[in-house]
């Protein structure tokens, strides 16, 4: 089966170290791929290259086997795109905007438009400038999903949405995935990715530093541990242990992080009077930040 997204050595060099460099990436059909990175890392540049909006300095990008620049029109028949920020439409009403983009795409089902706008309680009778930030995002969701595309390219889609609408958005995304759509979702909010993605790519300073399945990221055993001793804290017990970092103590309590096996810590605790021991799994955010620190 043709790969949904394939890039080889994709580079956009803005000079001064800014841009995107040598991106090699493959996203399989039906996959939900999270594209993570802080602001300015190169997420939007990648998306604009995939959408054929900007020219690559070198390398190539393909969507379902089509060159994303030379065959841009064919590519966009297959894609639903939600930009990071919806443009200004001034006095145009939501229904005019949906009607315009629906007509340009062709084959948009009015029932689908109605269903999405009802689901998000989006009033298409209002002028664009009357929309709140959240309503503008909802309109963006409608424009991206209304034609049931094979590939969804979503740039920070839930920013500005309230929690209830975020949940509704994730349901919509799951439905699209169940219907066979591929999703490329860029975000700097990790909880967003945790909800829906199967694989995650982490980008920093324009370079892809890691691609992993969600479980693989969790399997990088970084744990936060808090030990409460009956007597005074004894941080020196943990300082030289393999995989232990960031040891801090406060009265009876010692906190540290453990990477990899927990066994050396368990051995070191033997013989000490421990009142309480707490260890929690890392959130993806903590994994992400740890990864950045290490790669930095």
């Amino acid at each position: 089966m043709t790969t949904a997204i394939r890039t080889e050595g994709l580079t956009k060099d803005y000079g001064g170290g800014r841009g995107l460099f040598d991106l090699d990436l493959e996203v399989a059909p039906g996959e939900v791929f999270g594209y993570l990175g802080p602001n300015g890392a190169g997420k939007s540049t990648t998306i604009r290259l995939l959408m054929g909006l900007i020219h690559a300095t070198r390398g190539s990008a393909e969507i379902f086997g089509l060159d994303s620049f030379r065959q841009a029109v064919e590519v966009k028949r297959l894609v639903g795109y939600m930009p990071g920020e919806l443009p200004q439409f001034g006095g145009l009403r939501g229904r005019d905007i949906a009607g315009h983009f629906g007509a340009l795409r062709g084959g948009v089902d009015q029932a689908r438009v109605r269903a999405i706008s009802e689901r998000f309680d989006l009033d298409l009778g209002l002028k664009f400038r009357e929309y709140s930030t959240g309503n503008k995002r909802k309109l963006g969701i409608l424009l991206a999903f209304m034609h049931q595309p094979r590939l969804l390219v979503l740039d920070e889609p839930t920013s500005g949405l309230d929690p209830l609408n975020q949940q509704e958005f994730f349901k919509l995304l799951q439905e699209a995935r169940a219907a066979g759509a591929t999703v490329f979702l860029s975000s700097h909010v990790l909880s967003e990715v945790e909800h829906v993605c199967q694989r995650v790519g982490i980008i920093r300073h324009g370079k892809l530093v890691k691609v992993a399945r969600l479980e693989e990221l969790h399997e990088i055993h970084v744990r936060k541990v808090e030990v409460e001793f009956a007597g005074d804290a004894q941080p020196q017990v943990f300082r030289d242990l393999p995989g232990v970092e960031d040891v801090q103590s406060n009265h009876h309590r010692v906190t540290f992080t453990v990477r990899g096996s927990f066994e050396p810590v368990a051995d070191a605790l033997a013989g000490h009077q421990v009142v309480n021991l707490a260890s929690h799994e890392p959130s993806l955010e903590e994994v992400f930040l740890t990864y950045y620190e290490d790669q930095g």
Partner: peptide
């Protein structure tokens, strides 16, 4: 009432 349909203009 809220409008839910795209314009057919």
């Amino acid at each position: 009432p809220a409008a839910r349909d795209a314009s057919r203009n």
